[in-house]
Design a protein around this nucleic acid. Structure first.
Lengths: 128, 128
DNA sequence: GTAAACCTTTGAGTTAGGTCCAAGGTCAAG
DNA sequence: CTTGACCTTGGACCTAACTCAAAGGTTTAC
């Protein structure tokens, strides 16, 4: 698969794909003429990168994860990386749940406002 | 409250606090000598900003939300903003749950690898 | 054989979100 | 009345993650 097709298939620009390669996230074989030739499954990989990214992981974090998955690390190291990512995800999810509760409470309270006098953006409380 | 105390209380640098002010996220009164004087509740506000930020909201998104909360928008507009934020949070949470499943499945499978031959980073499947 | 649509590289520019620094004003303590 | 810890501004600089442009090689289509 050449870069144009990959760009087309993933919605990620050629420039960005080349950028990801420089960052070590993607790898491509080369044809005789110097053109990149992406291996099978690269579309899925690019999609995973974008997904992880949209969730706040940096490219270098993703790179570390992929290095593991790519066989550069031992079984044990891979597990460690995955476990720590899992933990991060759980933390993020908990934070999101918290933020959601704050926003939902504000919404439920129809937000009478008094930003200065009330506790600004404290979670809405029950009692007086 | 002066800027140093706020920085101390929130763990956010003075420079960053001034930056947030330029971005319209924070507001401070001025004392006779020109020093910023932050109103009550600002610590909570800064913490909320950081929290939202850590979840992938941009400063300008946060700014829009705060404009609403700050009374610049009508009750109705505020509700709309909050509802749309709530929706975004829900989408994010769903995405996170998905990513978590992928990573967890990889981990459970102890990731035998074969990145090239297997579907790279597809969720691990059951049957053949 | 030439035009269009691909591809290559290098290198500069952009945006977001800070971070640092210089030059200087303010204020409490000794 | 100086020292030190505050504060002010303006502007330069930094990293991440792109994005674009220039100059040129390759393939396919006519």
């Amino acid at each position: 698969m050449r870069i144009g097709a990959l760009a087309e298939a993933t919605g990620v620009s050629r420039d960005t794909l080349r950028f990801y390669e420089r960052q070590g996230l993607l790898r491509a074989d080369r044809r005789g003429n110097g053109y990149r030739d992406y291996p099978e499954g690269v579309v899925t990989l690019v999609r995973l990168i974008r997904q992880a990214q949209s969730l706040g992981f940096t490219l270098s974090e993703i790179g570390a994860l992929l290095q593991g998955l790519h066989g550069g690390l031992s079984q044990n190291e891979i597990e460690t990386v995955l476990r720590s990512k899992l933990h991060e995800i759980d933390v993020r999810m908990a934070e999101l749940a918290e933020l959601r509760a704050v926003v939902a409470a504000r919404l439920a309270a129809a937000c009478p406002l008094g930003l200065k006098t009330a506790g600004l953006l404290d979670p809405v409380r029950a009692g007086p």
